[in-house]
Design a protein around this nucleic acid. Structure first.
Lengths: 160, 160
DNA sequence: GGTCCTTGGTTGAGTGTTCAACTAGCACTG
DNA sequence: CAGTGCTAGTTGAACACTCAACCAAGGACC
């Protein structure tokens, strides 16, 4: 079942820098946020998710899903953001267990303020080093990889 | 100085799944390690770095560099691994400030035991979803990105 | 409308991680 | 060889994150 043939050197040449990117990139982005604005990368991700949500609100569970963070983490992060006035939590009238998170004006403002610097970093970390063709080619590949990592609840996968 | 033009949709299609991969992949690998063997992804990375080091040893600072982890983290991680008998710490005779970390037999054994399962996951997360051409194409690109993230001490970069 | 199972969310306690302050040893200068 | 400054590593204290236990509400079934 386990394939013991080691990675080819070409595979190594993909895996190693990928791991490097995966460990360094989040920290690099986080540092930038902490430095420029008073929000962490996690906070920023939450702000973005909420700003893009239909009706501008999300249940915590959906927020967790859309940010790829655990529910307990989202629960605490949102709690902290509520304290700082970035988001609001409203009890869902439909399901009294659920809570919706929405952006406050301050949250929206923080997001807008953080955006340009973030964009700048994204370019300098990533797109400044990729040709347009590479960008075009990378999209579908990354989408496939991201999908492969979601498995826990695969929507329409054959039972394996 | 800051380029405020938002990402193109093609860039979005790269950035979003990349962030997803970057947040989910480390956790997925870590879970596997925690489950299969008694080592974390961080531990495993340390074991690999040491096993590949010239003379089989590295100063903590170099270990931090080669694993892309902070020195203080490495210091604590190594301390914990010493307690568990996976590595040994030897005072460097040349520089009495420095300490070399080396693998113990147990550490080497743990690494060997963890390797096949790890390999398996690497394939199922990554290489099972890439064609050989994609692998070949991705290597140099990722190398470039990883290099772009290292900036703190750029070896031969023009002063900017 | 009671019983049982599931889902949404919170929380206590433990672990991991970071930052800044610190010790100790090296290296250069005079 | 005192003085200054740098580098290797450690550590306390704060913070982030996770896991598992938990409560409260919905839903299904009888």
């Amino acid at each position: 079942m386990v394939n013991r043939i080691p990675l080819t050197s070409e595979e190594e040449a993909v895996w190693r820098p990928l791991m490097r990117v995966v460990t360094v990139l989040p920290r690099a982005l986080d540092d930038q946020f902490a430095h420029d604005n008073g929000v962490s990368l996690t906070d920023y991700t939450v702000l973005v998710s909420l700003s893009e949500a239909a009706e501008g609100r999300l249940r915590l569970t959906d927020l967790a899903e859309s940010t790829a963070l655990s529910l307990s983490r989202i629960s605490r992060v949102v709690e902290a953001m509520v304290r700082r006035g970035l988001v609001r939590k409203v009890k869902c009238p439909r399901d009294r267990r659920a809570a919706h998170a929405t952006l406050t004006e301050l949250g929206r403002a923080k997001l807008a303020a953080a955006y340009p610097g973030h964009l700048d970093r994204v370019r300098s970390f990533l797109f400044d080093h990729l040709s347009p063709e590479e960008v075009r080619a990378a999209g579908p590949i990354l989408a496939r990889l991201a999908a492969a990592l979601e498995p826990p609840e695969c929507s329409a996968c054959p039972d394996d």
